[in-house]
Amino acid sequence: MTDSPPREPRRLTRGEWLVIAAPAAWIALFFLAPFALIVKISLSRPAQARPPYEPVFDLASGVAGLLEKISQLGFDAYRGLAEDTLYLDSYLSSLTTAGIATLVALVAAYPFALAIARAPQKWRPILIGFAVAPFWTSFLIRVYAWIALLKDEGIINHALMSLGVIDAPLPMFATRGAVIVGIVYSYLPFMLLPLYAAIEGQDPSLREAAADLGASPRQVFLRVTLPLSKRGIVAGVLLVFIPAVGEFVIPDLLGGSDTLMIGRSLWNDFFANRDWPAASAAAVALLALLLVPILLYERAQTREGRR
C-alpha cells in the first residue's frame, strides 16, 4: 500500500486485462477466498453435519438475515482457544521451538555461507547450488531420514554405545530437541541463501581496507562483514521462523506426543476432532501470530525489489 511507484497508478488497457484476468481470478478464488472462509468458519459453531459447522450467513438471506446472523455470531471457537491451556501451551511452544531452531540455524548457516562465499569464484555457484538442492527434494523424506538417526536403537545411539561413550541410549527421538534438529535441517537452505547473497555481494576491498588500517581478522569480521550482512540475516531469520512456527510434519514425526505445536493442534482439530470452527480459529490465531514477521518480510522484499 505504502509502495511509492515512480508513476501515478494507471488503469489497465483491455489487452492487459486479457493477460491478467486468469491469474487475478485464480488469486481471488484460491488465495483471497480461503482467508475469508477461514474467518467465516471460525465464527460459526461446530455441528454434527456435513460440512461440520453451522452456516454463518448466506447472501440469499438478505440484509435482515445478515443482521440477525451477526447478532448470533459465535466466538466460541476463539473462547475455546483462549481458555484451553492446551492451545496456549502450543502457541508458546511453537514460538519458542521455532525461535530456538531459527537461532541454531543462523549460527550453523553463517560459517557455512561464509565458507561458500570465500571459496574460489568458479566454485561458488556449484557449492551454493548443492547446498540449496536438498530444499527441492522431498521434505517428508528428509524428516523421515532423521528417525533412523535419532531413535533409541538408531544409528547415533548405536555408534555412541559401541564407542563406549554412553552406556544407555540417549533419549533423543520424540523430544523437542529432535524437532529443533528437524527444523534446522529442513530449513537450512532458506537461511543459507540470503546469508550467502549478502556476504558474497560485499566488496572485498572493504575488508582489505580494514586490514590495511590494522584491523585483526576478527575485527574485520565483526565490524565489516557481519554488519554488512545484516540484510541477509534478517531475511534468513524470517524465512526460517515463519514456516517453522506453523510446521506440522516435523513435530508430528520427530516430536513426542507432548511436543505441542500450533500446526499440529490445528491438524488434530480438523482431522481427529472434526471441529472445523476450532481449526479455523487456530488458523486465524496462527496468522495473527505471524502477521508481524510476514509484514516485516514483505517490507524487506519490496525494498529489495525497488533497488
Binding site: F30, A33, P34, L37, I38, G263, L266, A283, L287
Partner: peptide
C-alpha cells in the same frame, strides 16, 4: 510463499 501450509490447505478445502 510465507503462509503456513496447514492454513493454506485448510483455506483451500473450505473453498
Amino acid at each position: 510463499l510465507v503462509l503456513p501450509e496447514v492454513v493454506f490447505g485448510l483455506g483451500l478445502l473450505l473453498v
